[in-house]
Write a protein that binds this DNA or RNA. Structure first.
Lengths: 226, 226
DNA sequence: TCGAGGCGGCAATGGTATTCTCCCAATTGG
DNA sequence: CCAATTGGGAGAATACCATTGCCGCCTCGA
């Protein structure tokens, strides 16, 4: 189980395909570079401002490209943000998989997954791994995205969801948890963990916040004999 | 426990206070009426369009009042939406409390709460109770609100949260669940239930959606011996 | 009756996304 | 090597909205 880069549907980033297919096939690599420049600029702005409220104009200026070009590669701002989101998920999937693969016991793997996913959105005070981005703004934007383009978000989350499904199935096979339907169980866990982070923003007093561990314990009990 | 209208901080709607305090005290009732007309118009538009993306202008036209007046009562569109949100929560609290009070057994009361809260956001195919509004757009907007004004959302949710806390405490006192900290447990339940609804929008296949009952069972197991 | 504040009507401003238009410069085919 | 085609830069023009400002009426209290 859990082979190296086992993304469900091929491994090519979805945004890349979309952006590139708009250009001629011969110019593919140049097109990718240009699209990438937009993405890089957007990531920078996002990291600096700590929010997704940069303007297209800023992205243009920063990337040293033209407005025209931007709309040639992206259908609009939402598409750009979706692309950022997809990139971030990809990054995170690798990160989570790494942590998970450090464990061998099925429950320990699930545990590692839950903790890491919960921390996924948090702004790490500790210096970020080189090249990793501040995920907070993206996570926040994700909920808006989930309202307006649920299918897209689901699609982008696929890698993370898929990994979790595997872990749940493994644990179930080992009789460590008893779930009648692995998919539903996985969905429940993913939701609980992710929105537990989101819900924390409604709680001022930091001591009242729900930690990753607490959330995990709650999930674990939920999984024992569904 | 669970006295009739036991809102934590007085029972006067918060938006009403805000809107009214902007006017002279003598003209209070007239001011309330005017503010209410704006709210009514906004509710209508929201119900019709199924979203909060109506324009201020539409609210003005529909309510037969002036732009000027609008900004006299509300600091901006966000305040209006917050007011709608608060009203809706109030409505729902009454509704939930009613269902809960039909039960006497602590766990049954908790169960009733969870189910009702989960359904809270769903667009009821069944004709709505007269005067009740389509809560979907509000619920959707709530997540945006939670990003931008977490404290306000928390404040508005207070009545619902408070009710849940009581129920959890009652159940704990009766030794039906064992939670070290009722507040945290309540928060966890509320989050799980509410976001379980929200998460469902990421699942196309209706048969894979998480039902209110499933979510409740998950919570219940989570509460048994924390 | 007079004056001031409440309020309707509406034009003006400001911030953004998105589209349009013009033009240059490089590539390419003859 | 030249001219046609086209990718792409600059940025003006549009389209929306929210929000503010300004003018003048009209009412209500003194």
């Amino acid at each position: 189980m859990a082979e190296a880069g086992a993304t469900p549907e091929g491994t090519e980033p979805a945004w890349r395909q979309r952006a590139v297919s708009r250009s001629l096939d011969s110019a593919r690599s140049r097109a990718e570079k240009r699209a990438q420049r937009f993405l890089d600029a957007a990531f920078e702005l996002m990291d600096e401002k700590g929010s997704t409220e940069f303007t297209i104009q800023e992205v243009i200026d920063r990337s040293g490209q033209s407005l025209r070009g931007f709309y040639q590669y992206f259908d609009g701002k939402d598409e750009l943000l979706l692309a950022l989101f997809e990139e971030t998920v990809r990054e995170s999937t690798d990160d989570i998989r790494e942590v998970v693969d450090a464990e061998t016991e099925p429950l320990a793997r699930l545990h590692a997954y839950a903790i890491r996913l919960h921390e996924w959105c948090e702004p790490p005070d500790k210096p970020r791994k080189r090249g990793a981005h501040n995920r907070r703004p993206i996570s926040e934007f994700m909920v808006q995205l989930a309202v307006n383009h649920p299918e897209r978000v689901k699609g982008a989350m696929e890698p993370v969801s898929f990994l979790l499904l595997e872990l749940v199935q493994d644990a179930a096979r080992a009789n460590l948890i008893s779930v009648p339907d692995a998919r539903r169980a996985a969905a429940l866990v993913q939701q609980t963990v992710m929105y537990s982070w989101f819900g924390n923003r409604l709680i001022q007093n930091p001591r009242m916040r729900l930690s990753a561990e607490e959330t995990w314990e709650f999930c674990l009990r939920g999984l024992r004999s569904t």
